[in-house]
Design a binder for these strands. Structure first.
Lengths: 336, 336
DNA sequence: TTGAAAGCGTTACCAA
DNA sequence: TTGGTAACGCTTTCAA
């Protein structure tokens, strides 16, 4: 007896329709012409048996799974999810499904996940940042086409690209300076995180470029999380150093910072201005709405998707990586 | 010539090791004892050929894919993503991978996605809310085990469960009343959304239960989005009706409402108290932090995972659905 | 236009 | 313990 969850096979359809399996296959795939009468009985049989092709068998035969693997770091981060939406939106119409695994920012887990993905014979892998060594990604790319976001990497089966965090951070700080701010504090991200480093460098260099001397006491450590932002502001305030603006390594940090300020009755932007980084959905509705640098993550996802299909189907496409830019809202006050 | 992305097969390993494919299979799977010498040469061959079993072939053979399909509605919603984290955390250790597709709240797309999932022979499907007709889910469940979150459904291969939105909404409104509030406005969710209906009913009934007469002018339509919350508050304010508290159908609505209030200089909670619903991550860091009803979505995901494995592996597990509860933060002021 | 048959990479049964 | 072999469900070549 057939279990409730399996469905009819091509052979059964063939038998029911009184034709050969080959003919049914041809009909189903439109691979060749089938005479009118057979066509009718096949359609009939398919209907009554509820036949649906078994993709697993098709995949085995085809040697490709029409599936792409996505290595994300966390499901609960808009950062990744917007990117995945972009990936899905371009891969779905092309017939690919997404096998998603999260690596939790741990190189060992990430490697293990990629192995699983390759074992499942995905046609390509998208790696969204993470802590895998570049070297290892290059190695993996000998086994499967890979597009890595957040790395400057290349190879026969490998594409990698980054957004220009340095330039974007420069733009943000320049904006603050042009609004009349001179004492600008910075809450940094995790020191080992490449993007965080670039943003910090952008902050420092822009200060220098405008001839402002940098005050180390105004650079505080954060961790890309709200809690870190909150602590950092407390720290800053405790140090007694004054500042009129705050640039944070990302939006979550800005949210935490904003709450710390709120708790002390320090108004934004009246007393202190804030600029964030990322433009997560929530930043449009903070009080006040946050001025921040927008990362075009949805578009990034689309790029990843296009690069990946290009790699897989050997139709190299020149993909234009979208720029980041400052979105000015209400958290910055013009001084003097 | 073998393409760069494929790897050695069992047969090649067998040939290289001078044994039969069957023996290699047995060794790899530990299905039977293999003599020491063969074992060594097989290991050797596997290493030099970089052999990895082809899961696609294994799946075809086994008739199961060790994959479960997840029908989500949107990637960019913490609501779904927290749930998926829970699902992943219980499915991954059990050896299942997640094939994820989003239905965008459109019944036709959702049905199409489930068809794709079934066609790919997933071992089970998790449906996270959405607009599919119950009837259709029941039908699908004849072809594959299904766990549906957000529906009260059951069947031989079907489990469905909801959280008690009605009761939770009652609790939230009761809290407001007990804090001394009498004029409590409500910003509703989409009228066709079952959870939104339950929350509305909870609001109305609780008012009645405490002997408060309900004022229709204090019930405004929202849409579960920040923008709807903002508009709703503007509407409420324009109507001239006074209120001391605001209960919103979800947190996003509360965020929008909070911004509208902020824009008019109305303080929270000094002038107006707010209670949200969901407890999305951001609500801990709004100014002030939002009092809201927590939906234990991660735990829900774990439940879904356990129910699904129970269904698939025919080991029915009694799974305890976690309760929602009010988390009191700083957006409600005690009156009088 | 149609069918027979081989093969995709595994696993498992049956003999040996 | 080991090997041969037949499936799993499909596609595709080769003949007819």
């Amino acid at each position: 007896m057939r279990s409730a969850s399996s469905s009819a096979t091509l052979h059964e359809v063939a038998r029911a329709a009184g034709v050969s399996p080959a003919t049914v296959s041809r009909f189903v795939n439109g691979t060749a012409k089938v005479s009118e009468d057979k066509r009718a009985s096949i359609e009939q049989a398919i209907r009554t048996l509820h036949y649906k092709p078994n993709r697993v068998a098709q995949n085995l035969k085809a040697g490709s799974s029409k599936t792409i693997g996505v290595l994300t770091q966390s499901f609960v981060s808009v950062y990744f999810n917007e990117t995945m939406t972009g990936i899905e939106d371009v891969m779905k119409p092309a017939g690919y499904a997404l096998l998603i695994m999260s690596g939790h920012w741990r190189a060992d887990q990430e490697a293990e996940r990629v192995e699983v993905l390759i074992g499942r014979r995905v046609d390509g892998v998208a790696i969204l940042t993470g802590n895998l060594a570049d070297r290892q990604i290059v190695d993996f790319s000998q086994r499967v086409p890979i597009v890595a976001f957040g790395r400057q990497l290349g190879g026969p089966q490998l594409r990698g690209f980054c957004l220009d965090h340095y330039r974007a951070a420069c733009e943000a700080v320049a904006f603050l300076i042009e609004q009349g701010h001179r004492r600008i504090a910075f809450i940094a991200g995790p020191p080992e995180h490449a993007d965080a480093q670039a943003r910090l460098a952008g902050y420092r260099d822009t200060l220098a470029r405008y001839g402002l001397t940098r005050d180390p006491a105004l650079e505080v450590q954060g961790d890309f999380l709200e809690s870190g932002g909150l602590l950092a502001v407390n720290h800053l305030l405790a140090s007694g150093k004054s500042f009129t603006a705050l640039f944070t390594a990302n939006d979550l940090t800005a949210f935490g910072a904003r709450l710390a300020l709120y708790r002390r009755g320090i108004r934004v932007p009246d007393d202190v201005s804030i600029v964030g980084f990322d433009d997560v959905p929530g930043s449009l509705y903070t009080t006040p709405p946050l001025t921040t640098v927008r990362q075009p993550l949805y578009e990034v996802g689309c790029c990843i998707g296009r690069m990946l299909t290009g790699l897989i189907e050997q139709t190299p496409a020149e993909v234009q990586v979208p720029p980041m830019n400052l979105v000015v809202r209400e958290s910055v006050r013009r001084l003097g």
